[in-house]
Each structure stands twice: as C-alpha cells, then as structure tokens.
Write a protein that binds this DNA or RNA. Sequence first.
DNA 1: CACTATATTCAACATATGTTGAAAATGCAA
DNA 2: TTGCATTTTCAACATATGTTGAATATAGTG
Lengths: 229, 229
Amino acid sequence: MDSYNEIQLAITIFEITGMSQKANKSERILDAAEALFAVHGYDGVTMRKIASEANVDVALANYHFGRKMDVFNAVFERRSDKLNNARLEALRRCQDLAGPSGPSVEKIIEAFLRPLEIAQENTDPGWKNYLALIAYVNNSPVWGEKMMSSLFDELVQEYIEALKKALPNAKDEDIYWCYQNLSGALTLTFAQTGRIDKLSKGKCRSDDFHTAYDNMIPFIAAGFNKVCG
Amino acid sequence: MDSYNEIQLAITIFEITGMSQKANKSERILDAAEALFAVHGYDGVTMRKIASEANVDVALANYHFGRKMDVFNAVFERRSDKLNNARLEALRRCQDLAGPSGPSVEKIIEAFLRPLEIAQENTDPGWKNYLALIAYVNNSPVWGEKMMSSLFDELVQEYIEALKKALPNAKDEDIYWCYQNLSGALTLTFAQTGRIDKLSKGKCRSDDFHTAYDNMIPFIAAGFNKVCG
DNA sequence: CACTATATTCAACATATGTTGAAAATGCAA
DNA sequence: TTGCATTTTCAACATATGTTGAATATAGTG
C-alpha cells in the first residue's frame, strides 16, 4: 500500500513545463486564469486580474480565446486529456497485473487516485491549480453536471465497470452512491482549504497529498466493500 | 440502520417557517440571499438580484445588514446554532443509549448525519439551500477555513472525541484524515450538482437524501474502522 | 390627533467590468 | 529591404455594481 511503482511510471505522462514566465503569452494567460479560477471561482475573477497576473494587456485574452467563458473552458479542457490518459493507463496496468479475475477494489481505487497525487506533486504548480479548479467545478450546482460529465464521465464509467466486476453482488445504484462518496472526498482534498490543518491543530496538512491518499485509498475501498460486498 | 427514531425527534428542533412570501422583508432578503449564494457563490450574486428575488428595493439589504459581505455572514450564521444544537443533541442521545463504553463508530456517524437529512427534508426549503451554501463555503479555498472553523469546529471536536473513544487504537492524524473524507462526501451531497443523476442514467437522484445517507453511513463507518481500527 | 423612531424607496455617485475596433508592434517569408 | 499576417497594446464604449444620502412611508406611543 505504501509504494506504487507501477503507477509511478505514469509520472512521465505529466511533462514538466515549469518556468514561471513563459515566453508564450497565450499559455501565460491560461496559467494565470487557472490559478485564479481555482481559488476564486468563475465570478470571482476578472479579465483584468487575469491579464495583470499574466503580465499582459486586458484585450489579449479576448483575442486568443474569445469571451471570458471561453477562457474558462480553455483552462478546463487544457489538461483533461493528459489526466484521462494517465488514469486510463493506470487502470489498464492494474488490470494486466491482476489476470482474468480482475483487480481488487483497493487496486482499482489506487489506480484511480495515485495519478492525481503524482500530478499534484509535479514541479509545474499548474497541475495543483488545475485539480483545485476541478474541485470548484465538481462542487458547483451551476457547472457540476455539465462540465464534469462531458470531460470525465467516459473515464469514470470505465472504472465503474471494473468495480462492478470486483463487486459482483452489488446493485448498480450502490456503486454510484459509493462513487459519489469517493468523488466528494477527493474534491475536498483537491480544494486545499486548509481546514484540516486548523481542525487537527497542525497534525495534518492540506498539502500533504501523499498522506491524504494513503489514508483515502483504504478508507474508500473499505466503504465500497462494506456497502457493495 | 433503516429507521432512526431517536433522532427523528430532533425534527422538532427545525421549526417550520415556510410561506414563500413572508411579511418580514428582512427575512425575505436572507432567504433570497441564501438561495442565490448557495447556487452561484459569493461573487456570482449581486445585491440587485437578491433584492429582486426578495421583491424589495436594492438599498434595503444595506440598511438592514450593512455591506454585501455582512449579508453573506448573516445568512451563514442564521441557522448555525439550530443546526449545531440538533447535532449535539443527537450525539448526546446516542451516547446515553450506549452506556459507559460509548457508542459504536456507526452510531456516531449516524448521529452526525441524520439531523442533516431531517433538515434537508424540512418543508422550509431554506434548510436545503443553507446546506448547499455550506457546501460552497466548505469547499472554497477563500472561505473554507475561516468561516467553517469559527462556527462548526467546536461541534466537530465533540464528535472527534467520541470517535477517539470508539477507536482507541487510532492515531489522532488518522481520525482527522478520515473526518476529511467524511466531510468531503457530505459536502458533495449538500451541493446537489445532479452529476450522479446523469452518471447513473437516472438510477440515483441528487435530491434523494434518504438513500444518500443510508449508503453514506455504513460507507463512512467502514472507512473509519478500517483505517483507525 | 401629533410626535418619533423605524422601515422602505428613490435617485444618483463613483467605480469596475466585459468587450471591441483601431493603432502599433512583432515575426516571417520573399 | 518590402510586404503581409499575426500578435499585442491603447483607448474607449456601454453596462453593471456596491453603496450612500435624502425623501417618503409606516408603525407605534403619548
């Protein structure tokens, strides 16, 4: 449970694109928008703040992407393919290792989560911001269904199928409810609100992703096995 | 697990204050603000939208509460005492029933969650909106720590203590990490994004709170027992 | 009734916001 | 170099926003 070498390989999928002042202004706009939207949400960010953060004129974001909502969409879509590929590869890898009976619930959950930890620990802080943005979107009554479903449900359904095979006695609905619990726990970790830091009086840190996932994986797996076993 | 008569009594704590057009304009403003902030967040709501939804002049919210942020705080604080009392009472009741050894993890989680279900099923839709607002705040990197901690951490610490007694072998940090998983799952249920409806192709409904908690309680309890047992 | 405090509306302010069109700068091929 | 397409800046627009002060209405008290 502590080491996860198979998926560590997936780290190569998230290429390093660091350097805080990229030459490409179009990407700098997306980086700035990503960081700001992740913290303040769609309505809490102005085009001027984005431009200022990117050291760029106000009109440039409109020129490159169109309207403000198009900037938001561009940010949201920029990393989704890479993320989906990393997680799909992780699922395939753990299925290959498991043989015809298929992987255990815990292995499936681990494959679902570890690529996220790897992304958050990437030297490019954009990945951490991107996942915080996903937290905002996933939890939003306005964007939640539309935006998340269109980009991520295909991958999620693959995982659901794997879970159904590992839990042959489960009712479909139970799997989905359990998935919602997983998605919620994950979302709050993405958000990095710092509340657990205060609640635990410093014993836990919101940015200690490795420990977060070390606990989350057996926690969620136990929940699935209990409810769907 | 299906019936929960002890806590059903707590329903009397949430008095019924329905009627969509109250005489008191000050409360109508809070109701409108509550519903709007819950869906659109702080920055997605304007004083004019609040006033229009409450059928009231724009300047009235300023007169009664001060600045926009004060309206937000007033909404957030309005129901917190009632909610804390209901949940504290639920904890006390399940502790009284359990005797000196203390209640099981599952009973504690049930006491933590069922009052929320009761609130969401109250005829006053304000409670549902209020909990959706809590979802927004709890998941926000801007408000999460400050606002949640000041109003709810005292209650949460009581529950943590009860959980520590039920899980004597647990490390403190593990309890807090597990609590974060609980808090996240709960938050996403509050938010009512409708995503599970689409993902499950209608098999699950975001507003079916009873089923949500029926699954969440054993799910979360199993997670605690696994990680902290 | 008159008097007073509270509640509510009206009109307006200064500022912030998304967006646009023209001007200027830059990059690049011939 | 010239010429052309792309990128970036500048200036401005119409509108939206939080907030305020004065005016008006309402409620309660003697």
